[in-house]
Design a protein around this nucleic acid. Structure first.
Lengths: 288, 288
DNA sequence: GGAAATATGGAATTTTTATTCCATTGGTCG
DNA sequence: CGACCAATGGAATAAAAATTCCATATTTCC
């Protein structure tokens, strides 16, 4: 792993020993890692409070790593900053350099940044077009459902699997139609009146998803569709259609808005069901 | 001239009065101007020495401009830095603000909006902390891998399943360790030198994921870990660790940043492999 | 050139910050 | 279950830093 400066080096050393550190010192380690860019400005006390420990614990931490005390350790952060800030001159300068540094051919960093940017725009758009009426309707529908089925294939399957996981923390009975063993039909077949189906699909629509939607509708189950427009084939059989338009970059579709919406849906439902919030996050002793 | 921040404003005020300042104070003014980016780190004494004056002169300087002393003046510089380094307060802060803004009884809309906001902040943070070196290393590693294994459980499983889907569009051979039939071990067992494992896990870490990571490492396969910090158990066996800190709202963890990063990773890889971008999105006549 | 006003720097003081010491707690292992 | 060791946090102490005070130097202006 490439290590550029003293701070990274130090943090690496911390990471090494991390496991063998007492609880409080681990907390401090996490805090330092999190705030590496402003440690140089903080007093022992700030760090202590930030890490929920006594100042003396912070000093002990520094000493554990061979410094005489907090001050000496802090100097590492301070010097590293100075090294960066001073030689390359003003902020303006640095900016300009970053810009001029980019080569002709796109590099990974640029691709990544652009992609992330696209996702951000996607989320902005999601808030903007948010439709409270439909959203509430979706929550209502889930709240009343006896059993909840979820279907999505290919690109959207990840979303379905997440929803199934999340709903697993509620009292609802949940069925993920995952098509294992080619059994989409068999899996959806037990759906009936009083149940709900969440179907997620974007063009070109997955036929398995369409099939399930149609069946659910026939059986008088409620259908929540998550899709791109009111005009697609999902709309026909859906009771509620939540619209998401995903951003794309490099001809590649994001997934962030969809998953964000689904999570929001779950959180709203959980709140409705008066779940303790924590149960939504995790229950057991291992989670992910 | 556009004056953006408090430091600029202050320096302007100094420039105004400059002519009427006594010799030593002029020297201090020059020094401040020259070193505005590191004043926040300096002691009165440093400034005094740098300006060839007595420390008390520095205090007088500050007082001349209406501050109670050096400390108060220095705070201007410090705060300005912080504002830049952590736009509108650290990520933690912003999250907290979004959460604390919620009124008594939440309705669905508010919940959804807050949650989406939290996700947006999460993405902002993702760009900010993006580490090009590690990201590139991850892409390199995938490019060179003969076979790619992917593992994640519970909350993160959705991500793994998505990556598996995406990588399925490349020439790489891809194995999703999904634990079907309780066969995590059996599924990872065939990993070997020249292969790569992508492991995604957040606290409290899934033991299956840890197991796979350890095994992969033993077998001399390369490991890309996607996790929260360099300090977790995944770091030990990882060749590259990509850090993602997910936002949370209502004690509920988002997933957007992680998935966004994974997609970015895939896009970058696809670009590297000179895939036609479209193949990354979909191939056949039904997709999702 | 000398009185007044201002500036300067040494040293004392105050304030803030860091560190050490030690009693208590809590966990571990025989 | 009790003895031991590590960890923790309160309080005292030490160190560092900032500020004030004041005696002295320098400039200004008559």
């Amino acid at each position: 792993m490439a290590v550029s400066n003293a701070v990274d080096q130090f943090m690496l050393r911390v990471a090494d020993e991390f496991e063998s550190l007492p609880r409080q010192l681990q907390g401090i380690a996490r805090y330092l890692e999190q705030h590496r860019s402003s440690i140089m400005l903080q007093k022992v006390n700030d760090v202590a409070i930030g890490s929920n420990v006594h100042p003396s614990a912070v000093v002990r931490f520094a000493q554990r790593f061979g410094y005489s005390g907090f001050s000496e350790m802090q100097a590492v952060f301070r010097d590293a900053y100075r090294e960066r800030a001073e030689p390359s001159g003003s902020y303006q300068h640095r900016i300009r350099r970053v810009i001029s540094e980019r080569p002709e051919r796109l590099d990974e960093t640029q691709i990544a940044r652009s992609f992330i940017d696209a996702c951000r725009i996607g989320l902005d758009d999601l808030v903007e077009r948010f439709d409270p009426v439909r959203f509430r309707a979706a929550v209502d529908l889930l709240e009343q459902a006896e059993q909840i089925y979820i279907v999505a294939v290919r690109r959207s399957f990840a979303i379905a699997s997440y929803i199934a996981y999340a709903l697993g923390h509620t009292q609802k009975r949940v069925h993920l139609v995952d098509g294992l063993g080619g059994m989409h039909r068999e899996q959806i077949n037990s759906i009936g009146k009083g149940d709900a189906l969440i179907a997620i699909s974007f063009p070109p629509y997955g036929k398995e998803t369409l099939f399930c939607t149609r069946l659910a509708h026939q059986r008088k189950a409620k259908v929540i569709a998550i899709s791109e427009s009111d005009l697609g084939p999902l709309a026909t059989h859906a009771n509620v259609l939540l619209k998401v338009e995903e951003a794309s970059a490099f001809a590649f579709r994001a997934l962030t808005s969809t998953i964000c919406l689904c999570q929001a849906l779950f959180v709203a439902l959980a709140y409705r069901l008066e779940l303790k919030p924590n149960e939504g996050a995790h229950t057991g002793d291992y989670d992910a």
